[in-house]
Simulated scan of single mutants.
Amino acid sequence: MRLLFLAVLRPHTGNAVTAQRVRAHLEAAGHVCILKDAFDFESPSEIANLILAENCEAALALHLYRGGRLLQGHRIPFGVIFGGTDVNEDANQAEKNTVMGRVLEEARFAVAFTESMKEMAQVQWPHAKGKIYVQSQGIATTPNAAFNWNTFLQRSEINQSADNLHIFLLICGLRQVKDPLYLVDAFSEWHQEEPNVYLVILGPEVDPVFTREVKANVKRAAGVRLIGEMPQEDLHAVVKNCFAVVNSSVSEGMSAAILEAMDLEVPVLARNIPGNAAMVKHEVTGLLFSNPQEFVHLAKRLVSDPALEKEIVVNGKEYVRMYHSWQVERDTYQQLIRKLEGSTED
Score class of each variant (00 low, 15 high):
Tyr182His: 12
Asp185Lys: 10
His191Val: 06
Pro195Thr: 13
Pro195Cys: 08
Val197Ile: 10
Val197Lys: 04
Tyr198Gly: 01
Ile201Cys: 06
Leu202Cys: 07
Glu205Tyr: 10
Glu205Met: 09
Asp207Arg: 02
Asp207Pro: 05
Lys215Trp: 06
Lys215Cys: 10
Asn217Asp: 13
Val218Asp: 06
Val218Phe: 14
Arg220Asn: 13
Ala221Asn: 10
Ala221Trp: 06
Gly223Glu: 01
Leu226Ile: 06
Gly228Trp: 07
Pro231Val: 08
Glu233Lys: 14
Ala237Glu: 06
Lys240Ala: 15
Asn241Arg: 09
Val246Pro: 05
Val246His: 01
Ser249Phe: 03
Val250Arg: 14
Met254Phe: 07
Ala256Tyr: 10
Ile258Phe: 03
Leu259Cys: 07
Met262Ala: 11
Leu264Arg: 07
Leu264Ala: 06
Glu265Val: 14
Val268Tyr: 03
Val268Cys: 04
Val268Ile: 02
Gly275Thr: 02
Ala277Phe: 05
Ala277Ser: 12
Met279Phe: 08
Val280Gly: 01
Glu283Ile: 05
Val284Tyr: 06
Val284His: 11
Thr285Trp: 06
Gly286Phe: 08
Gly286Ala: 09
Leu287Pro: 00
Phe289Val: 03
Pro292His: 03
Gln293Asn: 13
Lys300Ser: 12
Leu302His: 03
Pro306Thr: 09
Asn315His: 15
